[in-house]
C-alpha cells in the first residue's frame, strides 16, 4: 500500500490563533477522503499545507512518499475555493494554459481538453469568455482545470459549492470514475449527503481532527444516524 499524501503532527498558527493542532492524516491510494467541519475549522489550511503552498510550523508533509518536489506537482490536481481562472480569456484558452504548464503538448493536449470538458458538461461553451459564464459554469471549468492533466492525486477545496444538485451528482459520478482508475481524491465539503459518498471522512473542529474513518463505521460507533450527529456527540463529550 502506498500513500499519495501524508501529513504528520501538523501544527499551524496564524498570528495568535492556532489553526491546526497536531493533525495527522494519511491518504490511501485510490480512495475518496472527505474533510468535513464547520467553516474556520482549518480545512483549507490543511489542504494548502498538504500541497506545500503553506508551511506548517511543526510537522512534516510527504507527497508520494517523499519530500514535495516540483516534479511531484505534475501528478497533483488542485482546485481552490476561489475559481482561480483568467477572466479575460475564453474557457478553452484557460484550459490550454493550465494544460501547457502541466506539460501537455500538441494533439494530446487538445484531446485531453476535449475529454475533460465533456465530463464537466462544458463542451459547447468552450469559446465563450469566462465573463459570460455563470457561477456554476465557472466552478465546473475550475474543476476541469484541476483535472486536465490526469493527476494521481486530487486536492479539491469545496468543489461542488454553488452547483445545482443535478450537476453535483454528475460530478460525484466523475469522482468515482477517477477513483476507479486509481486516483486518490481529498475533498473538503459542507454538504452532508456528499459525506456518505466518501470512502473515509475526517472531522475537523477548531484545528483538531476529532474523528476519522468510514462514514458507516463512525455512525455505528457513536450510535447516531448521521455524520452531523457524530459532530454533536463528539462536541458533547469534549465538554
Amino acid at each position: 500500500m502506498t500513500y499519495p499524501v501524508k501529513g504528520e503532527h501538523l501544527y499551524k498558527k496564524f498570528k495568535k490563533q492556532v489553526v491546526l493542532d497536531d493533525v495527522s492524516i494519511t491518504l490511501n491510494e485510490g480512495e475518496i477522503y472527505g474533510l468535513i467541519g464547520p467553516s474556520g475549522s482549518g480545512k483549507t489550511t490543511l489542504v494548502r499545507i498538504l500541497l506545500g503552498l503553506e508551511k506548517a510550523d511543526r510537522g512534516e508533509v510527504q507527497l508520494f512518499e517523499q519530500k514535495p518536489t516540483l516534479n511531484a506537482f505534475r501528478s497533483l490536481g488542485y482546485m481552490a475555493q476561489s475559481d482561480a481562472l483568467y477572466t479575460e480569456l475564453s474557457a478553452y484558452q484557460n484550459l490550454d494554459f493550465f494544460a501547457s504548464i502541466q506539460g501537455l503538448r500538441g494533439k494530446e493536449k487538445k484531446a485531453r481538453i476535449r475529454a475533460i470538458t465533456k465530463s464537466v458538461g462544458l463542451e459547447n461553451d468552450l469559446k465563450k469568455s469566462i465573463d459570460h459564464y455563470s457561477g456554476g459554469m465557472k466552478r465546473r471549468l475550475s474543476l476541469a482545470a484541476a483535472l486536465v492533466h490526469e493527476p494521481r492525486l486530487y486536492l479539491l477545496d469545496e468543489p461542488t459549492v454553488g452547483l445545482d444538485p443535478l450537476i453535483r451528482k454528475e460530478i460525484w459520478l466523475l469522482f468515482r470514475y477517477l477513483r476507479s482508475k486509481g486516483a486518490t481524491i481529498i475533498v473538503t465539503t459542507h454538504v452532508m449527503d456528499e459525506v456518505t459518498q466518501c470512502d473515509r471522512v475526517g472531522l475537523l473542529s477548531e484545528g483538531h481532527l476529532i474523528a476519522q474513518g468510514a462514514p458507516k463505521d463512525l455512525m455505528e460507533e457513536y450510535g447516531v444516524s448521521s455524520i452531523e450527529d457524530v459532530f454533536l456527540a463528539k462536541e458533547e463529550t469534549r465538554k
Binding site: F73, A80, A84, F98, Q102
Partner: peptide
C-alpha cells in the same frame, strides 16, 4: 487575489 497564482504554485512551473 483570484487564486491563479496558487494554481501555478501547485504545478511544476518554476
Amino acid at each position: 487575489t483570484t487564486g491563479t497564482l496558487d494554481r501555478l504554485m501547485a504545478s511544476p512551473i518554476k
